[in-house]
Design a protein around this nucleic acid. Structure first.
Lengths: 238, 238
DNA sequence: AGCTTTATCTTTACGATGTAAAGATAAAGC
DNA sequence: GCTTTATCTTTACATCGTAAAGATAAAGCT
């Protein structure tokens, strides 16, 4: 870990450690002492983890940091998640679930299929921009255990939603298992476009392009311009 | 670090440590003792780092592991790279340089502009598949210091090559600074498509699609099918 | 040539991390 | 009311990045 990162993290460490000592030891101060058994530690840890993630980034998301944030001992998470991979995977599952909800809501807006596809794409990028830590956790972490049911199902649903919305406006029947090459290509194209755009945007690699674009060109406008030139390749009936 | 990862790494640790002791202490065995001054440690460390990266993945790429792989003390890299960010950044610069060479070679093949664009896209994905560790280092690591001249220039050249090859077959003049919205969109589309496809492929997220596609559909064929439906949107003169 | 300076590499040390194991505490079950 | 189990803390250890001081050899200088 870099010295800068250590310094950045040490701030919260001391404060939360102090808060924890106070709440546990100084009962005379009138505050209720933190009970030995938290009661809902699992959810509290997940909420703490999300706060740490969006505040300190992926590198700051450590088991001990989460425990500090939640005000419990550093080994407390082990009982609920096994190891760091477990915690990260459960948090990613939450991210996928929320992401799926946002995509579903965007797809249910009224309008032509193309307009709805655009709305979904906008929602995709908007989620990542509003929750960069979560999106990075979901799509750039190698520490995800997809054998965990929660994560497996949430990620599966995410893919199914995407595949369904793309394949629904393609020619031919949409089998539950079999895909034509054109259908596969359409799914891969939609996903690659929006996922690649999102990653490049979050990594700051589109900053150069945006700077050299006409004044007032935002990430959203560039996204729309990019999709406008791609989507019309649909069959006329769509 | 997971127990599995620790076990996976510990193998090499012991062997290289043993080799180092032997080469330094047991002069009587006839082997030349490793000199105190390596002579070309910087390059040796970069080569060692690439071996570690492609063997043990991004998580295994630690300063100490690289030092062990090169047979020197764990603090030796500090003198040449400052910290882990320095080493990682220099290695990423090498990756970008090689990547640029591969893309340039692919773009110089004979054929129509569309054929050359396809060749470049194939080369892009092929590089990532042949060097997944390197590609991950270049595009998914947060530990890159783009203020380092080597990395900055190599990455800049990479982007310039992409932007040039896309903008070259667009209408209107290609200014060195100014881009029309259509030009920006074309660059963003090409990059997002191929980068997104590559990331999804490396993450194994296209496996489902490939499995449900017609028999014999490889990642390369899916890529071509995906691009075929996108590229023809070029002006007729291309 | 011999001495000094500098670059290179090693050793030692420290705080951080993940994780295992054992102890403490309170809730649940009987 | 006692025992069992779940939950949380404490302690411990190996690993990591990094800093600092020591050792060694090359380079430079007089």
């Amino acid at each position: 870990m870099t010295k800068i990162e250590q310094a950045r993290l040490s701030r919260h460490r001391t404060t939360t450690a102090a808060a924890r000592t106070r709440s546990r030891r100084a009962v005379s101060a009138g505050e209720p002492a933190a009970p030995y058994h938290h009661g809902a530690l699992r959810d509290a840890l997940l909420e703490a983890a999300e706060r740490v993630l969006e505040r300190d980034g992926l590198a700051g998301l450590t088991l001990r940091a989460v425990a500090r944030e939640a005000g419990v001992s550093h080994a407390a998470p082990t009982h609920h998640f096994g190891d760091l991979t477990g915690l990260v995977s459960e948090l990613a599952a939450i991210g996928f679930t929320r992401f799926n909800a946002a995509m579903k809501a965007a797809g249910e807006q009224p309008g032509t299929p193309i307009e709805r596809a655009m709305a979904r794409a906008r929602a995709y990028v908007a989620y990542a921009q509003a929750n960069p830590g979560m999106y990075g956790l979901m799509f750039r972490t190698e520490r995800l255990d997809y054998s965990r049911p929660a994560l497996h199902e949430a990620a599966e649903a995410s893919f199914a939603g995407l595949a369904g919305s793309v394949a629904a406006r393609s020619e031919g029947p949409v089998g539950d298992e079999e895909l034509s090459l054109d259908q596969s290509a359409a799914i891969a194209r939609a996903w690659s476009l929006v996922h690649g755009y999102t990653m490049l945007l979050l990594d700051g690699r589109l900053a150069d392009i945006l700077r050299r674009s006409p004044p007032g060109t935002t990430a959203e406008k560039l996204l729309e311009a990019m999709l406008r030139a791609t989507v019309p390749k649909l069959p006329p009936g769509a």
